[in-house]
Design a protein around this nucleic acid. Sequence first.
DNA 1: CGGCGTTTTGAGATATCTCAATGGGAGTGG
DNA 2: CCACTCCCATTGAGATATCTCAAAACGCCG
Lengths: 227, 227
Amino acid sequence: MLAAHPRQTVHAKRPPAGSASFSLDERMAYATVRRLLAKEHVFCEGDDRDHVFRVEEGVIAVYKTLPDGRRQIIDFAYPGDLIGLGVLGEHVLSAQATVPSKVRCLSASALERIAETDAGLALKLYKSVCQELAATRSLLVTVGQRSAIERVAAFLVALHRRTATDGSTAVKLAMRRSDIADLLGLTIETVSRTLTKLRAMSVIDIGQGGTRVDLCDLPRLTELANE
Amino acid sequence: MLAAHPRQTVHAKRPPAGSASFSLDERMAYATVRRLLAKEHVFCEGDDRDHVFRVEEGVIAVYKTLPDGRRQIIDFAYPGDLIGLGVLGEHVLSAQATVPSKVRCLSASALERIAETDAGLALKLYKSVCQELAATRSLLVTVGQRSAIERVAAFLVALHRRTATDGSTAVKLAMRRSDIADLLGLTIETVSRTLTKLRAMSVIDIGQGGTRVDLCDLPRLTELANE
DNA sequence: CGGCGTTTTGAGATATCTCAATGGGAGTGG
DNA sequence: CCACTCCCATTGAGATATCTCAAAACGCCG
């Protein structure tokens, strides 16, 4: 399960010496950026956890695989999201770009070292993990309790909340059906059938080769999601 | 969904003035203890989040309900676990004792105030939330990808890891079948059937009116759980 | 234009759910 | 001390949502 990591990195300006007093955001400006092709891994289960990443462009699927190959996507990380936080030792999850993406690499050890003395940064990391926890819980409820149509509706609504630009009702599905299936605990076929069912109900409209979805009837879709 | 909270509290020694410099553990010693009957709530969705609780005795089920009553248990909290962390504003989850229990009540605002200046405490809270995140992810994988028998096996193995005293292979199910069902995204009947199936396979043995399970063949059970 | 990866659609198989009845244990009151 | 009740767990039989396997359609890139 260990993938090669061709590191097409781009080095930005080096941070000045004594940078330990810089804030997280300030440090970001000096971090290394890494470009990823679709399906390329940011890290794999078992890798040493030496970096934390911030998504700059694209979408990163964070997932866990069972020994027999089944896979559960834990989260899709969008620009601005941090991944690789909240783990000690080696990675227990893998992270893979679903479309060409860019991530900013931050040294985990440096981050930790600073957090030990900088309560502000520690609190920032804390809140970031809390947000992640809330999102994971929400997904757990979806996967554990909802029907296929409710799961897909909930996914679309959540995606809209996270990525909607101003008042647009459209969302871009920047991942394959198999990724959505592995997030929702369904099969590809069920996801596909459910999307066409929603279209038949005139709740959504599908365009651009299935990658763009217009949530025509967002209120009804939200209702279908059961909250 | 707002339950009455008969607060049968026991006040311990008051903390000395200027307690802001005390550690989390030291503060615990001065906190209020609350006794709970089986099914009594620690807090409900929508309640103000003014306390964080540490379980002292018993088991607390942390859960979320959908509008139509379906319920997903997020976690069973055992003695030593903190609940109510990582939330801002009001509670989005409910917490209920599955058996008679005791919790220690800690002021959330005091904790936050201290964490702002005390990096050590902030880091402690951070690690606690990280642990919770890891547990929730693991449950998500179970619920999203595993079959009924795998889910029940995984639940028993996890319970054993968490509560096993020395080399004992027995675990106590300190909750009803409906609680296990709502944790695993199954029905009561499926949980029951699966347990009897595991017994028929001689992987477990059930005693004491179904509340005590002996994991006779722990290796095989672990294998059945798929990791 | 051909080939490849992906999505959609179909039809049959099945794991789990639903509904319903039975059984067991703990507590209560006669 | 027994009978009664209540709650929970178990078991059964039939219903169904989702999965599996298979084929066809689509879109993209060389």
